[in-house]
Nucleic acid binder design. Structure first.
Lengths: 248, 248
DNA sequence: TAAATTATTGCAAATAATTACATAATATTG
DNA sequence: CAATATTATGTAATTATTTGCAATAATTTA
């Protein structure tokens, strides 16, 4: 049996059952579980399914959505969020960009903290419903289903009226010369508005996002005051330090 | 059974019952309560539910406590939502007011239904993230924590730019002469804007809300086209019928 | 065609994750 | 405050994954 036939069978079965088990596939296809695992690995790599312990499940309707990104690199994100918490003080007005790093930060807000949070992220707003002492302002607009943030002119208009103490940015990619970049034009525009509205701009980025770039430019790297990352790698961060950006 | 299937089951059950109990889940899923607890832990960590002693509750669209919420009026709301579904057709633009009745309606949207939904409700927007074919537009503004809707000038400004086929209103109180009333001025203003923006106005109200009134007026009762309720009581609805309002 | 290279597959040991169970600590209820 | 239920913690058993390696099959190159 050809490898392609196996892959085909796996996808068909996944479609039919909404899940596949390695043991079952191994039996169906008469190959070792190792091979099945490698097949699933390949399919996951191509984005055709999500590999989980013991088998695989289909992608959610919105591929690489917020929901799927949540939980990965969770420890790193918590490290970052822990550092970022030190910037927060009672009475501040904060802009919270969407993204899993900022979401983690919001989850870690101490109960007593009194903030006004302006956000374009539906999950962040939802999370803060449970927080006793934050004021939440949601920017309006069309909601993107994969990132679960609002964007568009309405979002930007609302941000234009805001002056916040800090803007926490969840960034896709940042690069010393290419600046901050993203994979969606609309979201990049919103991020830019957020940066303009914040007195200090703090980017939350796991180390693997440093030195990478995406198609749509948000702003120059010099717009940032601080980068909060999980692991301070001397080599990687030097270019940012040279530009006067604090990295912690 | 894959862990992901369990998580899926828990979320589905939570969706249906508005609560889950560890003992029950342990039995349903045939795993120990420890495992259920860990699953709930993980889901809570992802912000998908709120873990409480003995089980979990949804990121509540209702400000009630665990004990109070057990199934209150849930069946009635489902009856109402079921009737309201018949007004919905592909391609429509719909305004969805916040509230538990409208939330229940949104939960019951068939997967194929292609709508544009404009809402001021954070939980409704969140719910529709999962829906494959709706476009969601969230009105911006300050978020009220008890009702979990946005309100204020920003919300109203956004609604002024909208022309929707139907406005679904979740009403606190309605009365033949006092009209539609609410307990918060800001929310009443927003509801008024929604009514103005909708071609047809359909109110969702359990029978116990008929003939009651609250301090803040939203609009005259004649602004309504239709009232959808759970039990059509001839006596109670006659005044509305006399005013030319359909009641189903 | 033969030899060399590459890819695929299965196996086994080491590693890691998941789960159930026992027990201690904590919270809730009457 | 005692009785009960729930949660946290440590541990052991189970199960899955990773890794290196050898055997086989397929492909390329000489």
């Amino acid at each position: 049996m050809l490898k392609e036939e196996r892959l085909d069978y796996i996808l068909k079965k996944l479609q039919a059952d909404n899940k596949v088990l390695q043991a079952e596939l191994s039996n169906d296809l008469q190959v070792s579980e190792d091979t099945v695992r490698r097949d699933l690995e390949a399919l996951a790599q191509s984005g055709l399914l999500i590999k989980v312990r013991g088998g695989a499940i289909p992608h959610s309707p919105h591929p690489y959505s917020f929901k799927e990104r949540i939980g990965i690199h969770e420890d790193d994100k918590r490290t970052i969020a822990g550092k970022a918490l030190s910037f927060l003080h009672d009475g501040q007005t904060i802009i919270m960009d969407g993204g899993t790093s900022t979401f983690t930060l919001v989850k870690m807000f101490p109960a007593h903290l009194k903030l006004t949070v302006i956000t374009n992220s539906v999950p962040i707003a939802m999370q803060l419903m449970e927080h006793p002492s934050t004021e939440v302002i949601l920017t309006g607009g069309r909601v993107f289903k994969n990132s679960q943030v609002t964007s568009g002119l309405d979002t930007i208009r609302m941000l234009e009226k805001v002056r916040a103490d800090i803007c926490f940015l969840g960034v896709c990619s940042l690069h010393p010369t290419a600046g901050i970049t993203g994979i969606d034009l609309g979201e990049a525009e919103v991020k830019y508005s957020m940066i303009q509205a914040g007195n200090r701009v703090i980017a939350l980025a796991t180390i693997d996002k440093m030195g990478t770039a995406e198609p749509f430019k948000v702003c120059d790297i010099t717009e940032l005051d601080t980068i909060v990352t999980d692991r301070v790698d001397e080599q990687l961060i030097q270019p940012y330090l040279n530009l006067g950006i604090k990295v912690i």
